[in-house]
Design a protein around this nucleic acid. Sequence first.
DNA 1: ATGGCTACGATCCGTAGA
Length: 254
Amino acid sequence: MKLATWNVNSIKVRLPQLLGWLAAAAPDVVCLQELKAEEAKFPRAELEAAGYTAAVSGQRTYNGVAILSRQPMAEVSIGMADFPDEQKRVIAATAAEVRVVCVYCPNGQAVGSEKYDYKLRWYGALREYLKGELERHPLLAVAGDFNVAPEDRDVHDPKAWEGQIHVSEPERAAWRALTALGLKDAFRLFEQPEKVFSWWDYRMMAFRRNAGLRIDQILVSPALAARCIACSIDKAPRSLERPSDHAPVVAEIT
DNA sequence: ATGGCTACGATCCGTAGA
């Protein structure tokens, strides 16, 4: 099974690229973030024609998440029960025996801001939510935009980013609290080249300079990690015209 | 120099992203 995550930054704008990428990469399950559209505007018919059924939690302008699957999905669940939130950031479903949780973690804007506090509280809720999911589902994958670069090697210029949003120690500690549950960063299960990132700022020719962060991840439970045989980031869509600022992450599971 | 793109929903700029 090929499991992917991609922050598309508007499903409306990115639909042609998404369809092209689905045809080229042929993933079985895809977690999408930042749909920026309500469910009624989700391009269900186009994706069905491409062979995918969708579980969608949409929102106008901001946020919005979905899971695409070639196989029918069961037990679709929206949000975190113990953390009521207007912001549509979490959707989960079971596909081909694997429990898939799609997350769009808060950005946090700036360290010390109100949104930063929300981000840390949200991460605390995510930890509790995933603890429960792990108890029920030994084969668990949590894929999405975590908005945290877990280590300095996930940052193009650690000196410049030191203490900043996405890399501050409380954020990294919140991210590590997920791994303390037993979840593993699939990307780091394998030898990887240096300076591989999943997001590049639209400004300053950041992509051309490879000035990026690795903030999109696929976390896997121990039982799923044992079946994970590869994980990589596909930079190709970031080179297209009118790209998302994020690139897809892909994990292969036997 | 704290900017610089991009998307959105509202206008012809503000908010947000990261």
